[in-house]
Design a protein around this nucleic acid. Structure first.
Length: 156
DNA sequence: GCCAACGTTGGC
DNA sequence: GCCAACGTTGGC
């Protein structure tokens, strides 16, 4: 059964433009167990993903991607020259996993965090809750549909 | 750039 | 196992 997700990326590091240009990208660098578990245990090929820009001028959802592989070990954990190198991880027992993410489309407009926060229908959505730092999270079907409904409305 | 919130580490 | 110190995330 199709599941929905949201994944955060800092656009200065990897933006929706970058994903559109490359087509498919290994979602490397995740070093949070909860986020890893969602990728490893939750995601299936074909699941849909909101692409979210974080730590930027207008944080918000900017596009839609899809899961393009099952989880496999994140190669950056083995590379001493990589910022995400993890000396405690081994190839026999890799600690960090990733999935490939494929571009699907941009949204017609950015649906900003500010807009999501002031929407009463999204009060329980983890993204808008105070202190949330999770970079990979599930999105309930109703929430997914509600947010997509915002795309064509109002501002932008 | 600041800093609140949160996760991880390590001493005990 | 507790918890203080530290590092990171990410909005503002």
């Amino acid at each position: 059964m199709m599941q929905y997700w949201l994944m955060k990326s800092e656009p200065e590091t990897f933006s929706i433009d970058d994903l559109e240009r490359k087509g498919t990208e290994p979602w490397d660098g995740v070093r949070n167990y909860q986020a890893r578990n969602f990728m490893r245990d939750g995601m299936r090929v074909g699941d849909k993903v909101f692409f979210y820009h974080s730590n930027c001028e207008v944080p918000g959802i900017v596009g839609i991607a899809k899961v393009a592989s099952e989880a496999y070990p994140d190669p950056t954990q083995f590379d001493p020259d990589n910022a995400h190198f993890d000396p405690a991880s081994t190839r026999a027992q890799p600690r960090w996993m990733l999935v490939d993410i494929a571009f699907e489309r941009r949204l017609a407009r950015t649906i900003s965090l500010a807009e999501l926060k002031q929407d009463p229908a999204l009060a329980d959505f983890a993204l808008v809750r105070k202190g949330n730092r999770l970079s990979v999270m599930p999105v309930e079907t109703a929430v997914w549909k509600h947010i997509l409904g915002l795309e064509k409305t109002g501002r932008g």
